[in-house]
Structure formats: structure tokens, C-alpha cells
Write a protein that binds this DNA or RNA. Structure first.
Lengths: 145, 145
DNA sequence: AAGATAAATAGAAACTATTTCTTTTTATAT
DNA sequence: ATATAAAAAGAAATAGTTTCTATTTATCTT
């Protein structure tokens, strides 16, 4: 694990650089989503010189390539990133520990029907995010900041 | 129309000021969602002195009170606002003209079941937004900027 | 109707997140 | 080993949003 990460980059026609691999490795090791600043903190522990623009650029490129997923958090309007599984799914986000788990229910067909029949419009994409407490946090009932 | 707007403010225990009424009136007149800057532009046409912080503050207060709805757009990480109908619904957002229409399909119960059964977690809230082309824009096939 | 008071606003300034720019470095193809 | 095009550093600019203080204003009380 950690070695086939370079394949992901090659598939996207991106050069395999130590920093790109490190970003993927950092996100691969987390079950939580991370903000650009958090990724940067972890990068600074690994590289003596690492610029925040480099982090932003790579997160954006990797998200565009589909290797990372951009998550929009409703409180703060910043976006955070995460990597996982490739087929269509949505996310359950624990508001306490920030863990992200995949959800496979999707109402896309019903939505498309409603849009087509009632609004006479045409669906291009949709976004669904579910917020709550994961098993562990629900058990401890502690909301961590 | 435009006169019962003050009732909305009183219900929230907010003072009825000309600027608050104007913000509500501006948003009431639009079918599109507006960003703080767009609201500010329209406010400047009505008031000789109007500060951007006033716009932000009021949009946030009104959104907290439920009179406005905060919409998160995936491209730019800014939030935009809009007022409408009170029962649970989601939004169809035209990516061309930015018009917002209400959607009543909601998979909340299926999602809750999935989260409970598979993740052993607990849903607190959810966000769903659907992007596409409205009837008019689908007809003209023109994507306006 | 007039005064008291707490909320709302202006305007300036601070802050934060993100992006842009130019130069230097580096991965990869030849 | 070299060429070249992409990636990165570091500084600086930009844009969106928030904070702060003094002033104004809506509403409550009498």
C-alpha cells in the first residue's frame, strides 16, 4: 500500500513527483476529510520546503481527475478533500470527528423524473451530503471541535 | 406585496429597518439566487450609503432565522441566498440563468435507513442540490455567463 | 409625544483563504 | 546525457468575509 499511488498519477498524465505522492499518501491514511491547510501541515512535516500554492494546485488537479473528492461543508464555505471508491455514491459526514463514509442510496432517477415532469428541465449533476454522528461519536455523545 | 415583509422580521424579533426590508424585497423580486455582492449592488441603487458588512450581517441573520436559504454552489465556494416556501424541500438550480426552483423529492427516509443499518450512525441533516438546465435555457441551449 | 435603550449601521481596517506571477527545479522522453 | 515541458518555491496580489468603534435609529416605556 502506498506504492500503486503512482499509477493514479500516471493515469491522469500527471508527473510522479514526491509531493504528489505524499499528498495522496496523506489522504489515503486518513478516514477524515482534510482541508488544504491540514494537508499543508502534514506536508511540512515531510518536506523542508513546501508551498501552500503547491498543495492547492495539486488538490485541485487531483480532484479534477477524480482521484480526490471535493466535499463542501455547510458551516465554513471552504472545500475539503478526500480520496476513495469510484462508482457513484454520496457521503455521510460525521459532524463530530469529520470521518467520511460512503452512502449508496441515491434518488437520482426520482429527481430526474420530477425535474422532467414538473419543471420541464434537464438534470446535469447533483450533490448530496448527509451530516450526522458516526457510530463511535453517537456512542460517546461527545462533539469534538 | 412587499408589505408583509415586515412581519417576517417581527417574527424573528428583528427590528424593521428600511435596509432589511429592502434586502427582503430585492430577493423577493428575484427568481434567481443572489450573492452578497449582487445584493449589495442592488442596495446601492436604493441607498446612498450602504455598507457591505450590513448586507452580510443581514443575509446571515435572515438565513439563520429561516427567512432566507443559503445555497452552496460547487464551483465557487461562496454562498448565495434566496427566500421561499417553508416546508422541507430541495433546490433545482439552473446552471445557465441561476434560476432556482423547488424540488419535493427527498430520499431522507432511505438515507436514514442506510445510515442506521449499515453505518450504525445517526443522521442530523442533509443537503441536496440538483444542477441542470431549466425549461427556458434547455430550449435556447445557451449557457449564459 | 418625548426620552431611554438596545439594536442596527457606516466606514475603515483586519483577516483569511485562495490565486497569480516569475523564476528555478525536476521528471520524463529522446 | 540532454532537452523540454511540467511542477514547485516564494512572494505578492486578490477576493471574500469579518471585526471594531462611533454614530444613528427603531422600538419600548411612560
Amino acid at each position: 500500500m502506498g506504492e500503486d499511488l503512482s499509477v493514479l498519477l500516471k493515469n491522469l498524465n500527471l508527473k510522479v513527483t514526491p509531493k504528489r505522492l505524499a499528498i495522496l499518501d496523506i489522504l489515503d491514511a486518513e478516514m477524515r476529510y482534510l482541508g488544504p491547510d491540514e494537508v499543508w501541515q502534514r506536508m511540512k512535516a515531510r518536506f523542508k520546503s513546501i508551498g501552500l500554492p503547491t498543495v492547492y494546485r495539486n488538490l485541485e488537479e487531483l480532484a479534477n481527475g477524480g482521484v480526490l473528492i471535493k466535499i463542501i461543508h455547510p458551516d465554513r464555505k471552504l472545500y475539503y478533500y478526500l480520496c476513495r471508491n469510484t462508482d457513484h455514491h454520496h457521503h455521510f459526514i460525521c459532524i463530530s470527528c469529520k470521518k467520511v463514509e460512503d452512502l449508496f442510496f441515491c434518488g437520482a432517477s426520482e429527481i430526474e423524473r420530477e425535474v422532467k415532469n414538473n419543471l420541464k428541465g434537464h438534470v446535469i449533476s447533483h450533490l448530496m451530503q448527509v451530516y450526522g454522528l458516526c457510530e463511535d461519536c453517537a456512542a460517546t455523545k461527545t462533539i469534538s471541535t
